[in-house]
Structure formats: structure tokens, C-alpha cells
Design a binder for these strands. Structure first.
Length: 852
RNA sequence: GCCCGCGUGGUGGAAUGGUAGACACAGGGGACUUAAAAUCCCUAGGCAGGAAUGCCGUGCCGGUUCGAGUCCGGCCGCGGGUACCA
């Protein structure tokens, strides 16, 4: 008897698939097409289990769709620009390009043995000049179409390293390398005008039926459409009025101060003459720019001395403060504070001793606000007393609408729809990204590069000398032979833009490029016409907002610039967000800085973790991340047990949308099971073919149930449940005494049902049993409805909602007959004690509940 | 802080509002073996009980319902995102 030998089997079948060329995507008008895409990886250097999980899920779908007669496109590429490559070059010399391509090679080498049904001929990396050159062409078309803007924006500035820092590089307000206090600095930056599309980006979410509701909700909240009002406050000193935006104008009566952003014109105008204001504004400039940090920071302010009149009660004067919590780029950069009905404003008012006055009460109550603001939901009824807009007991929403109408009628303000969504700043002051294809000319201003000069390629070296990445700042700035070029318009000496694009740009259109990856234009009409949209997109929930929103914007921009058909406005028909593979983090502290240890360095003793003799801290269950070193390498599993085991295991234990904590046990169990299946096939192959069997019908009935359950499991991303059914059916088959013919049919069907998960093993079984051609080409088995019909059904009997007994009845037994049987049931008779039940609930085919 | 999720045995988890714990891991018992490994069989939520069986049980508190892991409200804990990590 031979043994299950995955190494031999997997190499053999991978070769057979390659020779048959069955994974090459071929447009075939006679077939329905299916485009399945997993979010492409960043080439960090090694594949981790999260990648394996992601690509295996996609592969299950791709192989399943292929066996149901679809022309499948299942490509792979690399999201290859980004900071880690520059950091690696900074830390250990070398070149980001070399580092990146070496990593890509390694990862492809690691992916190939997994047996994924990928069309490798379509592979590209976003750092290929052929790709980013087309991206530059897209940029120029979008610029011409008015979809791009240039305006000032604030960045994190490290005054010691003289460089711009990413948020990730700012730790407790200090630069990660220099340790210097980070400042804000204003630079002129390029922006995609995504906020112009805010309305349609919200509205279209409603049609994305095959997207998770949570993702649609997150995007809706992120875009944050709100109806509010812009109110004009006149200054008592006759200066320019201050415009405030509010979504809660119903609280206007309680307005007691105005807060403006530190960079609001009112604040800026006073800065020169008021050292105290200047100092406060300066302090605000040093604050962390992230939203989380801003919101969590202590709310502080300073009185400017400026006063405005309350628009409804002109004899009330409101002080104008600068608040560190007001954002210049949302609304008008100024808000009115109503302490009674906003907790933040109340805290602020108590801190700085500002008045608190109710605009309304809850009905029947006139309690003044203490330290808790009165903030009813918009659907709650509130009671307005002495209100200018004449509202009485109404819901807050009605009051908001009435107030907006009233303000508009009085000419004191205008109703406005505001969005939380800001324009997408794409400029990055970094080397390893797609160069922005424009030239700055003293005479002509900003001049787009000519398309025939694309790609604007990144220089590999600097006039023959290696680029020194250890010097902070953007090397393109100190690269005269690359930077200094003639103006494309007038020919005078000019300079290239040295900023590169945000890497989110690269990933916002790659899915269209896969349809014609070598085309001379960004897309190719016939190819996008056939393959778009992506039928199933699969990736991490961490991309729920930014990547997916930017991609949706880009698809629309590509329609406007003629690169996509109208039908591709929503490029991803269905989205599945998988959970992450998590793993404990092992952490120690050295010289005041955290040090992260690799799992393989750690030994576990008595629930404590040690590296050598040193005990280290264990942080349970965190996202696998290169910077935390808690990454598990799948290669060990593959070389020990084979790809089929790795694939089976990552699908078997956890539901795909949930996070899974990686543990070493379990992989072995998967291997044992696959060995069992292989041995089963072997045994059936050696059966006496003429011997009579028993229970053929029972076996085949179970087989058809298994087909039904696995099919629905695969179609609904219930891979773990599908695998549970496969375990159960394998056990049934093992115990079966059925004839050779029935067992052979069962094991071949089993192989087919397992094929999306364990394609190599399935091919081997298929071949052993004399299957026709490749298992991967065989049509998906169909469940025979006639075999699935059951004639009896078991009904649990509940008494007061608790299960007490069960009865088996004919499937179509009428309700009244079931009732008679139930009332005659021993447990029921005993519980009733001669009384009639209060209620008898019979749900046909489901359950019976006797209420006593 | 804000937005969005998640929470079920020792563990991963299953369960269209209808028998909570499928399937699997680890465990316990047994068969085979000189022995071990491998394999196979049985067992298994907790408490009480010899058993039959009873009570309790899906993070916590409350609600809707004949019936709630599932729906609603309020908490607690954990995770993701928070616009320059990808």
C-alpha cells in the first residue's frame, strides 16, 4: 500500500496544470465571465498566513466558478511602492527598487507551491514603469478633466531631519528617528476632488447589495453627509462677519460663544499683536494632526477679545475664542458653542466659565443642565420655550428643519449640505512612489508633462553615483539632472515636481489594469468591456474605508476620462471582507524603546514567554504585522505537510470573516484527515468490483446532501461549514458497506467537492479512480433533488419553550393530527396533569411548543 | 474621542427567531502491539446523581416573543478604521 506523499503529488499536478495552461484567463464570448480578485499584497518580503488565507479563499471561488462553466480571471500583482522600501534603504543601505523586486521574487516563489489557480502571465508590480507611466497618463487626463486641484495643506514637519513625516512616524508628538518635537507646516499639495463626488458616492452605496452592510455603513458615516446651516454672526467692532456651520441650529438659543480654528483668518489677523494668542496658536500647531489625537486631546481655548452679536437676540454678545478642537477644513472653520446641548461645549464652558443656557427641555421638565449636556436624538420630542422659530413640542429633527427655514426667511443664514469627507491629498514628499508628471516653470507656472514623455521614470542613481537614502528628505529634491528639465510649454529651464503620489493611487485602479496589463493605454476598451466589473473582491476589513472609497472614486474618474465604460462606476460587484490572522506579540523594552521578538525565538513555559533567559511580555491576539514581528511563516507548514494541508487548515476552523488566532496545533489534524481521504481512495481502488454491496442508496443520498451543502457553503463563503460537511461525509463513506460502483462514485464526488480547497489531492484521487481528464476541468457535481427528499421529519416537543421530547412524523402530516399526537405524548400528559394547555404552537416541519 | 464590528465548552467554532455546543483540536477510556508510534472505537458544557433524570448555561443587566446565541435598549471587554502604514 502506498502512502500519501504531498510533496510528490503537488509538484506533479502543478506541472500538469501549467502544461495544460488551464489558469490563463481567456475571454470567451460563449461563456459567462467571472473576475475574482484578492487585494494584492505589499511586497514586505515574506508571505504570511493572512496572505495564504486570503488567496486560498479567492482560489476556492476561482476554481469553483471555473468548474461551473465560467471564463475566470484570477490575477495577482504587487502593491509595490511605499515607505518600508525607503526605510529598509535608510536602515541598511541598498536601493528601494532592488529591495522591492527581490521581495517580489521571494513572495512569488512562496506563492507558487500553494497551487493557486492564478494567471501569472498578467502579473505586474505598481513600481513597474509600464504601470506607473499609465498612472501618470491617468493623472494628466484627470487634471485636464478638472478632477484635480492644487491647494495648501498641513503636514508633519520634523525640524531636525528637515523632512515630512507620515502619521505613523510621529510617536507622542516626536519624530521617530530624530526625537524632535514635530511641527505643522503648510505646503502646496495636489488633491483629487473626491468631495465633489460625495453625493453620488453616498447614494450609490444603496445599490451595493453584495457588499457587507457594515462596510457600506462605515463609508456612509465617513462621507458624513449632513444638512445644516451656515449662520452669519456680525462683529461688534464692524469687522468681517464670522460664518459658522451647524447641524444643530435648533440649539441656537443656547449659543454662548464662538470657537474658531487656530488657522482661521480671525485668529491669524490677531496673531501679530497678541503674543498670548500667538503662543496658543503655536501650541496648536505642534499638536498631532491625526483625528484620534485631536479628539482625545484636552480641549483648550483662548479668548480673542472679539465679540459678535447673537443673530436672534442682538443684545446678547458672544465672545470669540480660538479652540484647539475646531478644524479649518470642515464647514467654515468656526462653530458656535452651545454648552447646554453639547458635551464638549459644556466641558469647555465649565472650564472657562462661559454661560450655559437651555434652548429646550425634555417635555414636562425644566431642569437646568448640570455637568451633563442635554443631547436628545433627532427623533426625540423636545419642548421649546420662548423659541424664535415658533416651535413647541416637536422632535429635534422637526425643530432643525423649522429653524433652517426661519433663518433663511429672515436672511440670517442659508441651509447647506456639508460632508465630512475631505479632498484626497495625493502629494508625498518621498522618493519611492509614482512621480507626479508636472513641471514648474517660472514663466508658465505649473505645466503638465507631455504624454509622449511618459513615463516620467524614477532615477535609479544620481549622475552615476548611488543615491544616499540615509540622508533624510526626498532624494529627488537633490537630484539636479533629474529635476532640472526644460518647460514642456516654452522650453525655458524649469523644474520637475519632486513629490510622488500617495500609494493609495496605485491601488485605486490596478483591478482595471489586470484586464489588459500590457496595453499601451491605461485600459483597453475590449478587455474592460469583457472582464469588468470585478465579480468578487476579497480583502481585509482594514480597507473598508480608504482603499475601497478611493477605488470607487477612481472608477468614476476613469469613466469621466474615457478609460472605463459607464457600467464600471461601481467596480466591485461583490465584496467579502475576511478577518485577519492574528498572533500574540512578544515584547520587551530595551533602552526605553520596545523590542518585538519573533514567535520562533520565544519558548513558552508555564504560560510565560521567554527569549533565552529573559521573560518577555505577551500581548495576546494582535494583527500580524511586520513591525511587531508577530508574523507566522507559512512555508514551514507547506514543506512539512504540503500546500493542501495549509489550504485546508486556513479554511477549516474559523469563519472567513472572523479573525483567526494562529496556533500550531490543528495543521496536523488537517494533514491526518487528508491522509485518511487518500487511504480511503486507495482502499476503494482495491475493492472486489463484483462483490455485492449494501446501503448503496443511503450512501448516495448522503453524497447528494453533501453536494448540496458544500455548494451552498462555497457560494456563501461558509468554507468552514462546508468543510465540516466534508468531514462528516468522509466518515460516512469510511463506514459504508456499499458496492464498489457506489463507493467509487462517492469518492470521486468527494474529490471534486474538495478540489477547490485541496486541488492536488483531488487530482490524484481523480486520476487513481480513472476520472476523465483533469479534475480541475470536470464540471461541478449537481445535487439530485429527488435524492434529497425525506418522508419523515423529527419534531422536537417543547413545554414552555424547553425541549422535553421529540416525535417522528410523516413529513406532510396535517397540523391537527400532529396536535393529537403531541397531546397524547407521555411527557406532555405528565406536564399537563389533566389540564388543557394554554396554547399549542405547531410550526409544521419545525417544532412544537406546549404552553402551560 | 468618534465610526464600525466581535464576545458561545479546556480550545477553534456550528446553529433561516424553533432540539445550544455540528465538525475539529486538546483531554479521558479502550482495541491492536512485546512495547511505542501510527491507526481504529468509545466518551466528553457545568453542577447533582449509580442511573433514569433534574437544575444551570451563549460577556453583564433589562426588554419583546409561545420560544432569543440570534431582535431591541443600556453597560463591560476586545479588535479594525480615524484621512501621510498598507
Amino acid at each position: 500500500m502506498s502512502r500519501y506523499d504531498p510533496a510528490a503529488i503537488e509538484a506533479r499536478w502543478q506541472k500538469a496544470w501549467e502544461e495544460a495552461g488551464i489558469f490563463k484567463a481567456k475571454a470567451d464570448p460563449s461563456k459567462p465571465k467571472y473576475y475574482v480578485l484578492e487585494m494584492f499584497p505589499y511586497p514586505s518580503g515574506r508571505l504570511h498566513m493572512g496572505h495564504v488565507r486570503n488567496y486560498t479563499m479567492g482560489d476556492v471561488i476561482a476554481r469553483y466558478k471555473s468548474s461551473t462553466g465560467h471564463a475566470v480571471l484570477h490575477p495577482m500583482g504587487f502593491d509595490a511602492f511605499g515607505m518600508p522600501a525607503e526605510n529598509a534603504a535608510m536602515a541598511s543601505g541598498g536601493h528601494p527598487k532592488d529591495w522591492t523586486y527581490a521581495n517580489i521574487d521571494t513572495m512569488v516563489e512562496q506563492m507558487k507551491p500553494l497551487g493557486l489557480s492564478l494567471d501569472w502571465t498578467r502579473m505586474f508590480a505598481t513600481c513597474d514603469p509600464e504601470y506607473y507611466g499609465q498612472q501618470q497618463a491617468l493623472f494628466l487626463d484627470m487634471l485636464a478633466a478638472g478632477l484635480i486641484d492644487r491647494k495648501p495643506a498641513v503636514v508633519n514637519w520634523d525640524p531636525v531631519d528637515m523632512t515630512v513625516l507620515a502619521n505613523e512616524q510621529v510617536i507622542d508628538g516626536k519624530g521617530w528617528r530624530s526625537g524632535a518635537e514635530v511641527e505643522k507646516r503648510e505646503l502646496t499639495q495636489w488633491f483629487f476632488k473626491i468631495s465633489d463626488m460625495a453625493d453620488e458616492l453616498v447614494d450609490a452605496l444603496g445599490d451595493l447589495d453584495d457588499w457587507p452592510a457594515k462596510v457600506r455603513l462605515m463609508q456612509e458615516n465617513w462621507i458624513g453627509r449632513s444638512r445644516g446651516i451656515e449662520i452669519r454672526f456680525e462683529r461688534t467692532d464692524g469687522g468681517d462677519p464670522i460664518l459658522c456651520y451647524s447641524t444643530r441650529p435648533d440649539t441656537m438659543r443656547g449659543a454662548s460663544f464662538i470657537a474658531v480654528a487656530p488657522d482661521h483668518p480671525v485668529a491669524k489677523a490677531l496673531e501679530a499683536d497678541r503674543p498670548d494668542l500667538a503662543a496658543f496658536i503655536d501650541e496648536c500647531r505642534k499638536m498631532d494632526t491625526t483625528e484620534a489625537a485631536m479628539e482625545k486631546a484636552e480641549k483648550k481655548g483662548i479668548d480673542t477679545g472679539v465679540r459678535v452679536k447673537h443673530p436672534v437676540y442682538p443684545d446678547r454678545e458672544l465672545p470669540v475664542w480660538i479652540g484647539n478642537f475646531v478644524l479649518m477644513d470642515y464647514g467654515t472653520g468656526a462653530v458656535f458653542g452651545c454648552p447646554a446641548h453639547d458635551q464638549r461645549d459644556l466641558d469647555f464652558a465649565r472650564k472657562y466659565d462661559l454661560p450655559v443656557q437651555n434652548a429646550f427641555y425634555m417635555p414636562g421638565d425644566t431642569t437646568e443642565v448640570g455637568n451633563e449636556a442635554l443631547v436628545p436624538a433627532k427623533s426625540e420630542v423636545v419642548s421649546f420655550i420662548d423659541h424664535f422659530a415658533g416651535v413647541g413640542d416637536v422632535t429635534s429633527q422637526e425643530a432643525i428643519d423649522a429653524t433652517i427655514d426661519w433663518f433663511e426667511a429672515q436672511g440670517l443664514g442659508t441651509g447647506q449640505t456639508q460632508f465630512r469627507l475631505r479632498d484626497w491629498g495625493l502629494s508625498r514628499q518621498r522618493y519611492w512612489g509614482c512621480p507626479i508628471p508636472v513641471v514648474h516653470c517660472d514663466a508658465c507656472g505649473v505645466v503638465p508633462e507631455k504624454k509622449e514623455n511618459l513615463p516620467v521614470e524614477l532615477p535609479y542613481d544620481n549622475a552615476g553615483e548611488p543615491i544616499d537614502f540615509s540622508i533624510p528628505g526626498n532624494p529627488l529634491d537633490r537630484h539636479p539632472t533629474w529635476r532640472d528639465v526644460p518647460c514642456p510649454a516654452c522650453g525655458a529651464p524649469a523644474q520637475r515636481e519632486t513629490d510622488t503620489m500617495d500609494t493609495f493611487v496605485d491601488s485605486s485602479w490596478y483591478y482595471t489594469r489586470f484586464t489588459a496589463p500590457r496595453a499601451e493605454t491605461p485600459t483597453e476598451p475590449e478587455a474592460v468591456g469583457y472582464w469588468m466589473n470585478v465579480d468578487q473582491y476579497i480583502g481585509g476589513i482594514e480597507h473598508a474605508i480608504l482603499h475601497l472609497l478611493y477605488s470607487r472614486f477612481f472608477a468614476r474618474a476613469m469613466i469621466k476620462t474615457g478609460h472605463l465604460p459607464e457600467t464600471a462606476a461601481e467596480p466591485f460587484d461583490a465584496l467579502f471582507t475576511q478577518g485577519m490572522v492574528t498572533h500574540a506579540i512578544y515584547k520587551s523594552v530595551k533602552d526605553g524603546r520596545p523590542v518585538y521578538h519573533y514567535p520562533e525565538e520565544v519558548t513558552l513555559k508555564d504560560g510565560k514567554a521567554f527569549v533565552g533567559e529573559m521573560e518577555v511580555e505577551t500581548v495576546p491576539s494582535a494583527k500580524m504585522s511586520k513591525s511587531k514581528n508577530n508574523v507566522v511563516d507559512p512555508q514551514a507548514i507547506v514543506s512539512q505537510f504540503g500546500a493542501d494541508t495549509a489550504r485546508w487548515f486556513v479554511l477549516s476552523d474559523s469563519p472567513p470573516e472572523r479573525d483567526v488566532e494562529w496556533t500550531a496545533s490543528g495543521a496536523e489534524a488537517a494533514y491526518k484527515h487528508l491522509t485518511r481521504v487518500w487511504n480511503l481512495c486507495d482502499r476503494i481502488g482495491q475493492m472486489d468490483q463484483s462483490a455485492p454491496g449494501q446501503g448503496d442508496q443511503d450512501l448516495l443520498r448522503e453524497m447528494h446532501k453533501c453536494i448540496r451543502d458544500v455548494t451552498s457553503g462555497v457560494e456563501s463563503f461558509g468554507f468552514n461549514a462546508a468543510i465540516a460537511k466534508l468531514y462528516a461525509f468522509t466518515a460516512t463513506l469510511q463506514k459504508s458497506k456499499a458496492s464498489h460502483a457506489a463507493q467509487r462514485e462517492a469518492v470521486m464526488t468527494l474529490a471534486q467537492l474538495m478540489a477547490p480547497m485541496t486541488p492536488h489531492l483531488s487530482e490524484d484521487i481523480w486520476a487513481h479512480q480513472g476520472g476523465d481528464g483533469l479534475c480541475a476541468r470536470a464540471p461541478w457535481p449537481q445535487a439530485d433533488e429527488a435524492m434529497l427528499v425525506e418522508d419523515t421529519v423529527t419534531l422536537p416537543i417543547q413545554i414552555n419553550g424547553k425541549r422535553r421530547d421529540e416525535i417522528t412524523v410523516a413529513k406532510d402530516m396535517p397540523k391537527d393530527e400532529v396536535e393529537k399526537l403531541v397531546l397524547a405524548n407521555d411527557a406532555v400528559v405528565k406536564a399537563l396533569g389533566g389540564n388543557a394547555p394554554k396554547k399549542l404552537i405547531v410550526v409544521p416541519g419545525r417544532i412544537v411548543n406546549v404552553v402551560i
